[in-house]
């Protein structure tokens, strides 16, 4: 079956932009998993909750979608701090935190379908035309088009991931987080205040879910089971990108979605979810080989 290069380019572009959305969801997960040791399913639920809150504020109070961030971001920051404080109180092991966030994941699904009903809710018909009319790309690529919402996703992802990467690498607090990740006890001895720092990191990670949730509500129809559709891409992107590396997760999410979309051009699209996990298992299977290659190279250098 032949596919025109235009269709392929458009598919890849759509995949890359959708990947930006997943990358901004993966951001919070990557930071919490990598730096706090919490593999947080609940982060996906928070994103869903953010999307539904945006939907309600826009449809019922007629707020501008961007204005809703003024409410959801601080609220989610508090939630993130609260959950992390609970983990601190019960002195939770990584596995315990995984279980608790898994339980919260399931609870949130039910809470959402109780409050907003399990039916599809679509914000798009209510949006101004500026949000929904496709934009053609400028001259060199005149036949490709993008959705304005996808551009919003791109900007949000670039902003949040850029800020997070900069903060982790170059600020004092970010370096303290890195130190804490390597050895919390020693970091504490050297003056890193671990508890406030973990609470703040968790709060900020949760706050990014509010932004991602806003993009979600603009981008796709909402159902309570959406996180189950995201979980594959988001978790795999987090792992492929390297835990605790937001930029890696974003790149991995973009690549994954491009692969998944391209797959759907040639093969039955209903198999696309399995592609993501196929890539993960391929990556895991290649681990010993990459390690072998790396050891070869380094031993050659030292010899």
């Amino acid at each position: 079956m032949s596919v025109s290069s235009l269709a392929l380019a458009q598919t890849l572009l759509n995949g890359a932009l959708l990947g930006c959305l997943f990358g901004s969801i993966a951001l919070g997960l990557s930071v919490k998993w990598g730096h706090l040791g919490v593999a947080d399913f609940f982060h996906l639920s928070l994103t869903l909750l953010g999307a539904y809150l945006t939907y309600s504020l826009v449809t019922e109070l007629l707020w501008d979608p961007f204005l809703t961030l003024a409410v959801t971001v601080p609220a989610f920051f508090v939630v993130g701090v609260g959950v992390q404080y609970l983990f601190h109180l019960i002195d939770a092991q990584p596995f315990t935190t995984l279980l608790i966030t898994f339980a919260l994941f399931i609870v949130t699904e039910s809470v959402v379908s109780m409050i907003w009903s399990p039916d599809l809710l679509n914000l798009r018909p209510l949006l101004a035309d500026g949000f929904t009319t496709s934009i053609r790309l400028p001259d060199p690529l005149p036949r490709l088009a993008v959705q304005p919402i996808d551009l919003v996703a791109l900007v949000c992802a670039a902003l949040m991931v850029g800020l997070a990467t900069y903060a982790l690498r170059s600020t004092r607090a970010g370096r303290a987080v890195q130190a804490m990740r390597q050895d919390a006890a020693i970091a504490e001895t050297l003056g890193v205040r671990v508890l406030p720092l973990t609470l703040a990191v968790s709060g900020l990670a949760a706050a990014t879910a509010a932004v991602a949730g806003m993009v979600v509500s603009l981008r796709m129809p909402l159902t309570p089971t959406l996180p189950l559709q995201w979980i594959g891409v988001v978790v795999v992107a987090t792992m492929l990108g390297g835990l605790g590396r937001p930029l890696g997760a974003l790149v991995a999410a973009v690549v994954l979605m491009m692969i998944q979309n391209a797959w759907s051009l040639w093969f039955p699209p209903q198999w696309a979810p399995a592609v993501t996990f196929g890539v993960l298992f391929l990556f895991l299977a290649l681990q010993p080989l990459t390690r072998l290659a790396r050891e070869r190279i380094t031993s050659g250098r030292t010899a």
Binding site: L86, I90, T96, I100, L104, I106, S110, M114
Partner: peptide, 21 residues
């Protein structure tokens, strides 16, 4: 209400993990 019972079950799991490790 299946949703409500789901919520109670999930909440119970969190409480159990926290109180009775």
């Amino acid at each position: 209400s299946p949703e409500l019972s789901q919520i109670i079950l999930g909440g119970a799991l969190v409480v159990v993990i926290a109180l009775l490790p």
